[in-house]
């Protein structure tokens, strides 16, 4: 009961915050504090959005970007979590890969764009690749850390009841015990994926990022902001939907 009330209050507060933010912004532009050439007024966003929808650019951009996002997220998350779990479990693999990982980890997703173009071209595969890489690392480290920090006493319990260390250990202990960490990684990757969408489409693969670049080269800041907000909404939506999955998988935690 107490939780519910405070949850509702939380939503109310953040709604109030948003209203204050947008009206402050509108006021700053109309009063001239912010020059309207630099920052579009919130009031101009609506017509800009309608234009984009009528011309079909908006729907097309969302479709394209969602494709890149979903594919990149899936590939990056699955491979990242999988390798993270393996490295967490197998000392040998962990040792072998440590140097390589240290070498590759600091390379930002953006730096892979030339290779993405070279290897895949300016297409869905190229954009997917860039997104997958940035999501990969988040999931790799989340899964690795989660597996490493599984309580060894649980393995002792499994052994006491006759369950083998490897297969039974993996499915009965390692995976469920590291589920909270892996889910946290997936969730962070969900946000990181949207950030990488812009980088992935920077060089002309069609999508929200590409459309933003086009608009900004024409100084159509209102259109840029429309797509910024679009992305924020898409992120909020994916995070919201993932919340159901996470709460179901981790229902034992509440």
């Amino acid at each position: 009961m107490i939780r519910k009330v405070s949850h509702r209050r939380h939503i109310l507060l953040s709604a109030v915050g948003l209203i204050v933010f947008f009206s402050g912004w509108q006021f700053a532009v109309t009063s001239g504090v912010l020059p309207s050439g630099m920052v579009p007024a919130p009031g101009t966003l609506w017509p800009a959005w309608l234009d984009e929808v009528r011309s079909g650019f908006w729907q097309q951009a969302i479709c394209d970007s969602l494709t890149h996002y979903v594919l990149g997220l899936l590939i990056g998350s699955v491979f990242g979590a999988f390798l993270g779990i393996l490295c967490g479990m197998l000392e040998l693999l962990d040792g072998l890969l440590e140097g390589v990982i240290r070498l590759l980890r600091p390379v930002p997703g953006l730096a892979w764009v030339p290779f993405a173009i070279l290897w895949f071209g300016l297409n869905t595969a190229g954009a997917t690749f860039v997104i997958a890489i940035s999501v990969f690392w988040i999931n790799f480290y989340a899964a690795y850390g989660a597996v490493k920090s599984v309580d060894p006493e649980l393995y002792e319990l499994a052994a006491a009841f006759g369950h083998g260390r490897f297969l039974a250990g993996l499915f009965k202990i390692t995976l469920p015990a590291s589920a909270p960490g892996i889910m946290a990684g997936l969730r962070t990757g969900l946000g990181q994926g949207w950030m990488s969408v812009v980088a992935a489409e920077l060089f002309g693969v069609p999508g929200i990022g590409a459309r933003m670049m086009q608009a900004s080269s024409l100084l159509a800041t209102d259109v840029v902001v429309v797509y910024m907000l679009t992305m924020a909404l898409l992120y909020a939506l994916t995070d919201f939907l993932f919340g159901f999955v996470r709460r179901y998988v981790l229902r034992w935690q509440v």
């Binding site: 319990l157 006491a160 009841f161 202990i173 589920a179 034992w252 935690q253």
Partner: peptide
């Protein structure tokens, strides 16, 4: 079979 000092139930 062993009953542990700390119960050691599996939380999930």
């Amino acid at each position: 079979a062993l009953v542990f000092q700390d119960a050691r139930l599996i939380p999930w």
